[in-house]
């Protein structure tokens, strides 16, 4: 099971020897399944996109409606990720450092957006923030802010889907931080705020950035929760994934492929950055 290659000694060089069996089987299964489900279908999109040619690709990419949709998707995801980073760090801090009744329930509630289907979240948020909904009416009447069926509604939906990412990446790092370092800073005369900004924050920074990037990446591609709360009208609140669906319904495969490729390239670049951040964080904070 272990040595599948006839020249076993030679083929072992690219991996460390192990007494455990199953390397060949698990490697083979993983690679075949990964290729069939993920790599080959994704390559198909790449091939289809390459066959468009540059002129056609740029014509679609710089179509004003496409530009507007991409701007909304990325802009709203950025705004939601910033809000989620601020409140996510605060929630992680409260959950890790303080003890209060109901803390465990609050901790469990953070995962809700992971478990609740996006369509369910979508109709719930649309009902809450509609002009005659409980939150929408208050916001409109007291502050003159319209959330439902506007770009602000898109941001609200993206805050919902992205929140757990920041909390769940910051929380374990915060738990690992040695309280002694804080005590040392305090003994050396540092005030609490100075200890937080100079001792705790730098240690949390990689996790905060990772959480921000994950929340942002999730927001860019989000579809289900947004389409109920947005007006979905061109140039108003039409997100990029919705535009892909519209192009597909019009049988405009070239248009759908081009927009998907732009989104995919940016998403993969972000995944790459996230992995770099995690490697960086392991390098600096992993060997404590």
């Amino acid at each position: 099971m272990t040595a599948t290659a006839p020249d076993g000694a030679r083929s072992f060089r690219w991996r460390r020897r192990s007494v455990l069996p199953g390397f060949g089987l698990s490697l083979g299964y993983t690679i075949v399944y990964l290729s069939l489900v993920v790599l080959i279908p994704l390559a198909g999109l790449g091939i289809r996109s390459a066959s468009l040619g540059w002129t056609q690709f740029w014509a679609i990419a710089f179509d004003p409606r496409v530009v507007q949709a991409l701007q909304l998707s990325f802009g709203a995801a950025l705004a939601a990720a910033v809000i989620n980073t601020v409140f996510g760090v605060l929630v992680a801090w409260v959950l890790v450092r303080y003890r209060f009744p109901g803390r465990r329930w609050l901790d469990a509630a953070v995962d809700l957006p992971f478990a609740l289907p996006t369509a369910v979240a979508g109709i719930a948020l649309a009902t809450l923030y509609a002009p005659n909904g409980p939150f929408g009416a208050i916001l409109d009447h007291w502050f003159g802010i319209k959330v439902g069926f506007t770009p602000l509604g898109v941001v609200m939906a993206l805050i919902f889907v992205g929140l757990p990412f920041v909390v769940r990446t910051v929380q374990p790092v915060l738990e690992e931080i040695d309280r002694e370092t804080e005590e040392v800073a305090a003994t050396l005369g540092a005030r609490r705020w100075r200890t937080i900004t100079r001792v705790i924050f730098p240690a949390l920074l990689p996790a905060i950035l990772t959480g921000f990037a994950l929340s942002f990446a999730r927001g860019v591609g989000e579809y289900g929760s947004v389409i109920f709360i947005a007006s979905n009208l061109p140039f108003q609140s039409e997100i990029a994934p919705l535009l892909i669906v519209i192009k597909l319904e019009e049988n405009n495969y070239a248009g759908a492929t081009a927009i998907a490729t732009i989104m995919l390239v940016i998403s993969f670049a972000m995944l790459f950055v996230i992995n770099l951040l995690q490697a960086w964080s392991r390098k600096w904070f992993g060997h404590e």
């Binding site: 993983t30 993920v38 279908p41 579809y223 990029a240 994934p241 995919l264 993969f268 995944l271």
Partner: peptide, 24 residues
Amino acid sequence: FLLTLIDLPFAVSPVVSGLIFVLL
């Protein structure tokens, strides 16, 4: 690298995931 490949579907928008199978 293999871990990054396993994570790929997390980075793909659900709509794009559907689209790749329509194209396939």
